[in-house]
Amino acid sequence: MSRRHLLLAGLALLALWQGVAMLVRQPVLPPPTEVGVALWQEIRNGSLGGHFLASLWRVVASTLLAIFTAAPVGLILGQSRRLNAFFAPVIYLLYPIPKVVFVPVVLLFLGIGDLSKIVVIFLILFFQILVLVRDQAAGLRPELILSVRSLGAGRLALFRFVYLPASLPAILTALRQSIGTAVAVLYVAELFATQKGLGYYIYLNGSALLNYPAMYAGVVAMSVLGLGLYFLVDGMEKRWCRWQTAA
């Protein structure tokens, strides 16, 4: 998708927003021009920046933690039929459960700090990456593995030069699919007993202060956070998986 198409889509959404705001004529839905002014003011006074950085840290930390734990586990399960058969029923039961239901439980056990919010997002990303990487590793053609083994490659070399490169697209696909859910759960997690984060900022301005332009400025900032992460993953896929994008 070209930048021109993205720009046109963004302008169309802004025009739709402006039209609906003109029809509704309610303070709860300010026009995008008013929200843009509020967004600039909140950035200038530093109020929105601190909340944005707090949310960004939580998402990035949970994403890195999920990659470095779920990807190796998925590769191991994909290589070993015995281990996969043992753990598959557990994964099958846990994977479909919406991880947002664990927010109160995690908060009770880990408190109201950053750790609880990182763990909640980690749970979402972990199972997404684990399942996709496992299936990708298990679906590798046997002749490819045999040809590499015939050159004297051991298990570590297979892991590094065959399973990991072959599973990299699955890891990035899982991240792309999970970003929207992770940001949504981040909003829910930041509503509980915290004073930092975009979720808290949106709730404070919308429900307590009734400052609707600032509330929508927070929504825009959270949207930018999700879109930025999505485009980052998309760029990594184009850079690291060129054979796939070319195909």
Rank of each mutant, 00 (worst) to 15 (best):
A217R: 04
Y187V: 12
L144E: 14
G46E: 06
Y163W: 11
P104G: 03
V106D: 00
V105T: 10
E143H: 13
Y216V: 03
V28E: 15
P89T: 08
L16Y: 08
L48K: 03
Q41S: 12
Q136P: 06
G226Y: 02
P30H: 04
S223L: 09
A138V: 07
D234H: 12
G74S: 12
F122C: 01
R239Y: 03
A137R: 03
L146M: 14
A208Q: 15
S178D: 02
S80H: 11
L125G: 03
A88I: 09
S62F: 01
P27Q: 10
F159M: 15
W243N: 09
G180M: 09
Y212E: 05
G78Q: 03
T181I: 11
E143L: 13
G50D: 12
V105P: 03
F109C: 08
R239C: 00
A85F: 11
I202G: 01
F68D: 07
N45W: 11
L7R: 15
L146Y: 13
A15V: 08
L93T: 11
W57R: 15
G180H: 07
L115K: 03
E42H: 09
A174C: 06
A166F: 10
D135H: 09
L125H: 06
V73L: 15
L164D: 06
A12V: 11
V100Q: 03
R239T: 02
